[in-house]
Simulated scan of single mutants.
Amino acid sequence: MVDAMPVLALLTLTVMVVALIDAITRREDQVKHLPKFAWIFFIVLLPLIGSILWFALGREYEARSTPMSFGDPRRWQKDAQHTPPPAPRENRTTEQQIADLEREMRLADLEEQVRRRRAEGGAPT
């Protein structure tokens, strides 16, 4: 007969390690209710309870963008036909983009000159 204590200790250690890795690799905006450091401290201090609370309350789960599909693969093909087409790519060359940026910079400079002359009391030319 296997003693339950080593199995429970190993299970607790495993859950704690997984929770620590998950908590450490999460971004700050994916951690709820407490700061990330507090969750890590809580998981180390109370391994089983802290790990369970981390997975239940502390981390933010991402919503699935598409539901899981099961069953006939032909249904997957039907779903693939209804996906929206990709956004059109911009076909301007780098030179055209640079020319547009330079034009915008010249326009911004002219607007700044007009503002400065109006502030000085002179009329723009």
Results as ranks from 00 to 15, higher is better:
Gly122Glu: 11
Leu53His: 13
Leu57Asn: 12
Pro84Arg: 02
Ala38Pro: 00
Val2Ser: 11
Gln97Phe: 02
Leu8Ser: 15
Phe37Cys: 05
Arg59Gly: 04
Asn91Asp: 06
Pro6Ala: 12
Thr66Met: 08
Pro85Met: 10
Phe41Pro: 01
Val7Ser: 14
Arg118Leu: 15
Ser65Arg: 15
His33Gly: 02
Lys32Glu: 04
Leu8His: 10
Thr93Leu: 05
Asp72Met: 00
Asp29Trp: 01
Met16Tyr: 08
Thr125Arg: 15
Asp100Met: 03
Glu62Met: 09
Met16His: 13
Pro124Phe: 06
Ala38Asn: 03
Lys32Pro: 00
Arg106Phe: 01
Glu104His: 05
Pro47His: 01
Arg118His: 08
Thr94Tyr: 06
Asp100Val: 04
Ile52His: 09
Gln96Glu: 06
Phe42His: 08
Ile98Pro: 00
Gln113Met: 10
Thr14Tyr: 11
Ala119Asp: 15
Arg103Pro: 00
Asp29Ser: 10
Pro35Cys: 12
Arg74Cys: 09
Lys36Ser: 03
Leu34Gly: 02
Leu46Gly: 11
Glu104Pro: 00
Arg118Gln: 14
Lys36Tyr: 01
Pro86Trp: 00
Leu45Asn: 11
Ile40His: 02
Val15Gln: 12
Ala119Phe: 07
Glu60Gln: 15
Glu90Tyr: 01
Thr94Trp: 07
Met5Val: 15
Pro124Leu: 09
Gln77Val: 11
Arg115Asp: 02
Ala87Asn: 03
Ile21Gln: 10
Gln77Asp: 14
Leu53Gln: 14
Ala63Tyr: 12
Glu120Cys: 03
Glu120Ile: 05
Asn91Ser: 07
Phe70Met: 09
Asp100His: 02
Glu28Val: 14
Gln81Asn: 06
Glu120Gln: 13
Leu45Asp: 09
Ile49Thr: 09
Thr12Arg: 05
Glu111Asp: 12
Glu90Leu: 06
Ile21Met: 13
